[in-house]
Write a protein that binds this DNA or RNA. Structure first.
Length: 260
DNA sequence: ATTGTGGCCTGCCCGC
DNA sequence: TGCGGGCAGGCCACAA
């Protein structure tokens, strides 16, 4: 599902729209507009405006336009960004691989040709004009070690729940969290505040490296642990049967032998 | 305030 | 063969 690596792939794809001018906005699913955004406001902000830049923060993609507004895109678990009919990533886990016109929830058409569209079967994503990003933590791909350490030290929640909290660090979803904790050899159930300095250091290092790695591989589900997140799955490091539990409200897989 | 839970959404997979 | 229940998780509202 779209986590930071997918959002970054979408951002890179959408960069090809920089400089184009919007001529039409399509909002076939008004439910998909979030945060008080309505069709009229979107049209007023986007039609005749030119794309200046495409940014990303955490799992969000932000399109700056020269009317002074920002188009905020979220993808939930099944959303794909497409430009000119090309999808930003290949497969998404838990998402039907086929494409149906009815699953396009939002689109803008450009004067120069081409379309930027959000395709989302399960409608868990959304579109927001001028989104409020004030409650998002630092982007996970560039968070400083000391900032991450401070955020984790301040909580008694399980470390995995902390990593999933977008106000702590933005961009980590369920699959990335499991992969990072597995690589860093940290038990996801550990109380965040109990982590030692060395463990915090490992977490930061593996967080940044894992995000880079998964972006290069082309998906959050393409981690080393990924294929083993299933009944009967074994730790790729030591062959131990993986443990499964709900941690931080999410299905969690980890190696009970080397994650401590 | 912090932490945890449930619901939303809907396609798909498994078992009967 | 069809059907229904459970499952997936990002995000938010709400409860404790």
């Amino acid at each position: 599902m779209p986590e930071l690596p997918e959002a970054e792939a979408y951002r890179r794809l959408a960069e090809a729209a920089v400089g184009r001018r919007v001529v039409a906005v399509s909002t076939p699913d008004l439910w998909y507009l979030k945060g008080g955004t309505d069709r009229d406001a979107l049209e007023a902000a986007l039609v005749a405006a030119r794309v200046l830049d495409v940014r990303r923060h955490g799992k969000r993609v932000l399109v700056d336009v020269d009317s002074g507004h920002v188009l905020g895109l979220q993808f939930g678990m099944t959303g794909t960004l497409e430009l000119d009919g090309e999808a930003g990533v290949g497969d998404l886990r838990y998402t039907p691989s086929r494409r149906e016109p009815g699953w396009v929830r939002f689109a803008v058409r450009f004067e120069e040709g081409g379309v930027l569209a959000v395709h989302d079967p399960r409608r868990l994503g959304g579109v927001t004009l001028d989104p409020d990003l004030s409650r998002l933590g630092p982007d996970a791909a560039v968070v400083r070690p000391a900032v991450l350490a401070r955020a984790l030290a301040a909580s008694h929640a399980p470390v995995k729940a902390r990593l999933l909290d977008q106000s702590v660090v933005a961009g980590v979803g369920n699959l990335v969290a499991d992969e990072v904790l597995w690589r860093a050899a940290v038990d996801p159930r550990r109380r965040s505040a109990d982590l030692r300095r060395a463990e915090l250091g490992r977490l930061h290092r593996h967080l940044v490296a894992t995000l880079e790695d998964l972006l290069a591989r082309g998906g959050s589900h393409l981690g080393d642990l990924g294929p083993e997140r299933r009944p009967g799955g074994r730790c790729p490091k030591d062959g131990t049967s993986l443990a499964r539990a709900v941690v931080g409200g999410r299905t969690t897989w980890w190696c009970p032998a080397h994650q401590r």
